[in-house]
Each structure stands twice: as C-alpha cells, then as structure tokens.
Design a protein around this nucleic acid. Structure first.
Lengths: 111, 111
DNA sequence: CCCCATACTTTGACAATCTAGGTATGGTGG
DNA sequence: CCACCATACCTAGATTGTCAAAGTATGGGG
C-alpha cells in the first residue's frame, strides 16, 4: 500500500475500516477495497493480500457473515454482512480509536 | 500495556511518541516512558520491552543519539537526544499521522 | 537490611500487514 | 474472435512492531 500521498495503514485499523465499510451495506471483498479507497478520497488503498486474510479472521470471530451470490455484473462474488456482534465490535473499535487519537493529540500539544 | 481505560498503541505510533517526547528535551529511556504516560494523562503506558528495542532501532536510523550520564538521582542512565534527522522524521511521522486520521475520519463520516 | 522504584537489556511469542505470486471470468477494443 | 483488462478471490512467506516475561543492577526509605 502507500505511495506518495497515500497514508500507511496502522496495524489494528484495518478491521475497523472493513467493519465500517460493511456498516454502510452488504458488500463483497473487492468492493470493500473500492469503498474504502473512495470514502477516504483515495488516501487509503487496502491491498488484496491484506483484505482477504482480514476478512477471514473477522468472519472467524463472528463479526461478519458471508454468502456467495451473483454480483450485478454477472460474476460470482462472496458478500459479507455485519453481524450484530460485528456492529458492537465496530463501536468498540471506534471508541478505542478515539481514545488513542485523543491521547496522541494531548502528547503532541505538549510544549 | 493497556487495561480498562488505557488505549492500545497501534503499531507505528511508538516512534512518533518517542521522538515527540525527546523533542521536549533530552531524556533517558525510563524517563521517556514516564513522560509519555504523564503527557497522555495516563492513557498511554509504554512497556519497557517495547521502548528499549524501539530506542535501539531509532538510534540505528540516526534519529537519536545517546550518551551515558549520571542522572540527578545519582544513578547512571543513558540519555537520548533528537538529532536533526530525528526532528525531520518527527515532522514526517506527524504528517503521516494527520493524513491517516483525516482519512479515517472521512470514512467514519460516511453514511 | 530488605524491599521498592528506578534503569537497562534480552528473549520469544504473536499478530497484522505487505509483497508477490496464483486462479478464474466477464466485458471490451481491435 | 481473441487478447487483454478489470474484476474477484486465495495463499505463502517475509517482515515488522509490540508485548510479556524474564534477568541484572543500584540507590534510597522504612
């Protein structure tokens, strides 16, 4: 990932982004990548090699469920959906993120 | 690290915090931990097992320099100081951090 | 004199991401 | 019609950063 003006993903943020992307509606893997890129104004580009293992991990934890369907383009794709526990997880991760950002902000404000 | 209301450090943030701590003045390892904890209002607690390897890494990269001195408490301690390139690095990492926070914010604002 | 906080180091485990490959298919341009 | 590209998924291996848990040593307070 990355490149000039692209931001590196920090370890631990990907799950939150995936869950958030799915909170906007069911989607397949490849689409999640596109949605994240688009919503971040091209600043974040998730690699496939990062996404698919992450999706597997997240499904194992029960935060998403998946099913194969035919995409509108006529191709098969595996659609992921947030579960109730995934929605809860998203809230938790967002809260953690906020706490971290707050803490870092405090430190950066120090003179 | 962590505990109830403590925030987890995300991989990649520690360097920035160390550099920032040192930008406020020369300090030894143990003191860096305390400074970070204090500045973050106890939200961030860096483990020794995280800090010392990080300091070593950072020194190898030339972002800090170190020298043994006698601390005011009468004990020996290794004092670290930001180098010019470390100061530059701090700026870069802060800019990356800002970009990431911005990108994540955009995504989280999506409806 | 014992313990605690300070101060530094090292080891091994672990988790997440990235690089770099691989497969397959539908649509499009030449 | 066929080559190619974008879509769509998967996996292996390497790398990296952090953490847990240990160890050593010392100054000061009770």
């Amino acid at each position: 990932m990355v490149g000039k003006d692209k931001a590196d993903l920090l370890q631990g943020t990907l799950d939150m982004l995936i869950l958030k992307a799915l909170s906007l509606g069911e989607l397949h893997g490849y689409g999640i990548i596109q949605r994240i890129r688009q919503l971040s104004d091209e600043m974040l580009n998730v690699e496939q090699g990062s996404l698919y293992p992450a999706l597997y991990r997240i499904e194992q934890k029960g935060w998403v469920s998946s099913k194969w369907s035919v995409h509108e383009t006529g191709r098969d794709a595996k659609f992921y959906k947030l579960t109730r526990s995934g929605r809860k997880q998203l809230e938790d991760q967002e809260a953690s993120w906020d706490r971290l950002v707050l803490a870092v902000t405090k430190i950066r404000q120090a003179t």
